[in-house]
């Protein structure tokens, strides 16, 4: 299970990031979201949602073996094992492993798909690649 990005459709509303944080932390705080939106203004004047591509680099570099892939392909952080060292943050080629001062573990997308449900322009879409579960 992945998220397909239609980057030109993004309007920069950040609704995805709001629902992400509410879903996972029960808090209104988009800075705890597991995806980000790049804004390039005034030139060329475009947004680009950036989501986890499930490349697995984070799991590879984790010194604590705290990150493992689940049956839908998402890399799940074991919050007990994670020491918030930031190795995975540095290793992520897309910059979508996050840290927040309130939390003692990193934030990685678990592909709950809540963000794709609220996106009103199909900039991020649930993508069942190759019939994965």
């Amino acid at each position: 299970m992945r998220i397909k990005v239609n980057r030109d459709n993004c309007t920069g509303c950040h609704l995805c990031r709001q629902v992400c944080a509410i879903r996972h932390y029960n808090e209104i705080n988009p800075k705890k979201a597991a995806l980000r939106i790049e804004a390039k203004f005034p030139d060329p004047g475009k947004y680009r949602p950036v989501v986890c591509s499930q490349c697995g680099k984070c799991a590879e570099v984790c010194p604590e073996n705290a990150i493992s892939q689940n049956d839908i392909g998402a890399y799940i952080v074991d919050k007990e094992k994670c020491i918030n060292c930031g190795e995975c943050v540095a290793a992520c080629p897309l910059g979508v492993v996050f840290q927040h001062p309130d939390l003692d573990h990193v934030i990685i997308c678990d592909f709950c798909m809540e963000c794709t449900r609220v996106c009103n322009t199909d900039a991020i879409v649930k993508w069942d690649k190759g019939g994965a579960k």
Binding site: C13, H14, L15
Partner: peptide, 9 residues
């Protein structure tokens, strides 16, 4: 591009 305010769909 279409451009939204924060949290507006």
């Amino acid at each position: 591009t279409h451009k939204a305010c924060f949290g507006c769909w």
